[in-house]
Design a protein around this nucleic acid. Structure first.
Lengths: 229, 229
DNA sequence: CCGTGGCCTTGACCTGGATCAAGCGGGCCG
DNA sequence: CGGCCCGCTTGATCCAGGTCAAGGCCACGG
């Protein structure tokens, strides 16, 4: 099944409100890009190739320290974009990006995209809205890391995640990636899961699914309203 | 001397490239706002009044935890803006803002601004560029907090600051605010300044001015290329 | 099938920075 | 002018999470 550029862009809420003509312009500039699991999409400091719209798969956007420590800024799944800040702002890539699973993206190359933004007002409005969402994500992550402890971060993550009607959260990737996103080591992530489990707030449904048993208590932990468990 | 809306907006690089007509529209919607030192400008969760453009003074944008801990996301001085993300994105204020010094701002109210953005493409482009700069600031701050130790954060801060020809950095506000911005306590900030001073990398020029004595070594500390001092 | 590598959990120990407390100096206000 | 408050520095102590190591399990490839 050949992936369809229009289908990928159609799933992206950034482009939900732009007129057909603008959308058609994006479709005509977009290029399908496939990345095998583990493949580096770009490195920090590379010139920015453009905005990637994820059609399927999963991408981690991360920064690294000289000692090898990594911090994942964003896990990007279907319907979401990455690298838009650098593409729009005309910067080099400020972080690395790597496919965590086999991934298909539509790439909107920087030059034609910038031209389109200069010519097409509704597109400009849509991208601007997308940027505000990205800032919100970063501010929320910063708040987690700076103002919440490990249990608070995990509780917040679980409460914000999509749950099934039975209250089950499916972890979208390896636990060590989720840990990195929350600025925890995988050891601490594991221990924190254990603590919430022992306190009766969650239980393991299987390897990568957790059932939330007491969302009220989890909310209180996320907001720092309970003493340390 | 009555502050001049046009003068304030003129100093703001966000509006540097917009045509006179757009600029005039902003000037006609802008309102002068004054805040005494210590005055709360808005609280987290308040409806967003609009984009503030600082003409003079200094504003801290910060988040708080239930235990009273604060984290300053941004110190905003003349020529810079705050609350643009919420105003553009149509959110409530995601953080608190407080005047650290007597401050004069031009406020661009949310509703007319959003209308202007929908009608005025060059303005939209300019604001979009401003948002990319804000994202860059947040990503850089996140990198400092997550991937650098206290000395690395301070070194980076000092290297990025404006210096006089004699290599002197003037700290723009109380040390405890700078510490909060770097996610340090004022005790640790003080100790870290001491460590860099004892290592011969900086010296105190007076109470709130530091002279950088060895920018190469500071750069290496900022990049994690030196062992802990 | 077996070996290997990767992921995760768990225990022991360590550490960078936080917390608490005390003291000093300067500015402000009555 | 004097007292008070705030900001800062410094010392002592504590601690949440990091580091290191080991073991178990599972999936994959030869």
């Amino acid at each position: 099944m050949e992936p369809n550029v229009g289908g990928i862009l159609d799933q992206c809420r950034l482009f939900a409100d732009i007129p057909l003509e603008s959308f058609g312009q994006l479709v005509s500039m977009a290029q399908i890009r496939r990345f095998a699991k583990g493949r580096r999409i770009f490195r920090e400091g590379d010139p920015c190739p453009g905005v990637f719209v994820v059609g399927s798969g999963l991408v981690r956007v991360f920064k690294t320290a000289p000692n090898g420590k990594e911090h994942i800024l964003h896990m990007v799944g279907p319907g979401n974009t990455f690298a838009e800040v650098a593409a729009i702002g005309g910067f080099d890539c400020p972080a690395h990006a790597e496919a965590v699973a086999p991934t298909v993206c539509a790439l909107l190359p920087t030059e034609p995209l910038q031209r389109a933004l200069r010519e097409d007002h509704p597109l400009c409005l849509g991208m601007m809205t997308g940027l505000t969402l990205w800032v919100r994500h970063l501010v929320g992550l910063m708040e987690d890391i700076v103002l919440r402890d490990a249990a608070g971060r995990l509780a917040r993550y679980l409460l914000d995640a999509q749950t099934t009607p039975g209250g089950v959260v499916e972890l979208p990737t390896l636990r060590r990636h989720l840990a990195s996103h929350l600025n925890l080591t995988s050891e601490t992530f594991s221990r924190t899961v254990r603590r919430l489990t022992d306190a009766g707030l969650i239980e393991s449904a299987d390897d990568n699914r957790l059932r939330l048993l007491d969302t009220e208590k989890l909310r209180m932990i996320a907001e720092g309203e309970l003493p340390r468990i």
